[in-house]
């Protein structure tokens, strides 16, 4: 008997490296599979679109739960531009003639860019930033900067969703599941958009969304040099560095470290907020952290309302002592 559902996960990767967000998206796919009645009823297929991405394909064949890897490998896809990547996914969905019941991608800048475009090409809606799966057609997703949760049911025959990484655990990557690899010879060009350049920040520190510890700094640091205190503490704890919008706007750190409603969403085991007042938009990005520590001179700062442990005081006294003692 044919399986009822096929869940297609779009892999995010850098051609030679699979992103951790793909592994958490696979975890969401497995939850849908459970709700569908297990592997007999629902299979998980992963689509890799890229250029010279064999390493990624190999990594996915070791990922728990993957039943099939579909690969589109062509120089056309070097820069993951939405124009041809979305068209390629839509074309594959159409060619497979309704085989796919669910289409998932991580809610990263990659997934947010390509998936709504794909959904519209297929004339279906999208569920953004899914934080839990309640059944094969119903999910929970945060609205109003995480100040409310919506339980939403999709009536579309193909359910398209982006998945919030911090809400799911990554699947294991040490399974040898010997799943089939299907190479597809698609190479759609970009007719109207071209890649010009990129400036990626290089960091030795762990990536923000998957870090176990995050130390974030805000306006209270005062200047860029003082932000070094946040970096020193993060390094001592083996953690990632984050920032509030105020710290980014003031030029202390680059934009991609911003934690909040419109930046990164993190849920580490330990989140240390240094000189951050706790605006709604910042809390949206970190309030699901397991343990939150706040260091702030203002005892009325909103951050203390959600912090498990707070210290009121001058961060320039507290931080050096903290760095020295961890």
């Amino acid at each position: 008997m044919a399986t009822q559902y096929t869940i297609l996960v779009i892999a995010e990767h850098e051609h030679d490296r699979l992103s951790a967000d793909t592994l958490t998206t696979l975890s969401a796919a497995r939850e849908i599979q459970q709700h569908a009645g297990g592997r007999q009823e629902a299979v998980i297929s992963v689509l890799v679109i890229g250029s010279q991405c064999q390493v990624v394909v190999d990594a996915l064949r070791r990922a728990e739960g993957v039943d099939e890897v579909m690969v589109v490998d062509s120089p056309e896809y070097r820069h993951h531009l939405s124009e041809n990547v979305s068209a390629t996914i839509a074309q594959i969905c159409q060619q497979e003639n309704g085989r796919f019941s669910h289409l998932l991608a991580p809610a990263t800048t990659f997934g947010k860019d390509i998936l709504p475009r794909t959904a519209a090409l297929l004339d279906v809606g999208q569920l953004s930033d899914v934080i839990s799966v309640e059944s094969t057609d119903t999910v929970m997703r945060p609205i109003y900067a995480g100040n409310a949760l919506a339980r939403v049911q999709s009536l579309d025959s193909l359910k398209v969703m982006t998945v919030r990484s911090s809400a799911f655990n990554a699947v294991s990557t040490s399974i040898d599941n010997k799943c089939p690899v299907i190479n597809l010879s698609v190479a759609l060009p970009c007719r109207y958009s071209e890649f010009v350049s990129e400036h990626k920040a290089v960091s030795e520190r762990p990536e923000l969304p998957s870090a176990r510890v995050v130390v974030s700094g805000g306006r209270g640091l005062g200047d860029k040099a003082s932000f070094g205190l946040v970096e020193q503490l993060a390094d001592k704890l083996g953690g990632a560095v984050g920032a509030s919008r105020a710290a980014v706007d003031a030029g202390f750190v680059s934009n991609d470290l911003q934690v909040g409603q419109t930046g990164k969403i993190v849920a580490p085991e330990l989140y240390i907020a240094v000189g951050i007042s706790g605006a709604i938009q910042h809390l949206a990005g970190m309030k699901d952290s397991k343990v939150i520590v706040a260091i702030n001179s203002d005892p009325d700062a909103a951050i203390f309302q959600i912090a498990d442990y707070g210290i009121v005081g001058d961060l320039f006294d507290i931080m050096p002592e903290l760095i020295a003692s961890v």
């Binding site: 995480g146 939150i292 203390f304 210290i311 003692s325």
Partner: peptide
């Protein structure tokens, strides 16, 4: 067209009240 039904809007879980610590040593 309405392809999605919002079944319910609920409050997110609230965090338990935290504590203020007096020193770095206590925090650690």
């Amino acid at each position: 067209s309405q392809r999605q039904h919002v079944l319910e809007i609920v409050s997110p879980p609230t965090r338990k009240a935290g504590v203020l610590v007096a020193s770095v040593a206590e925090l650690i």
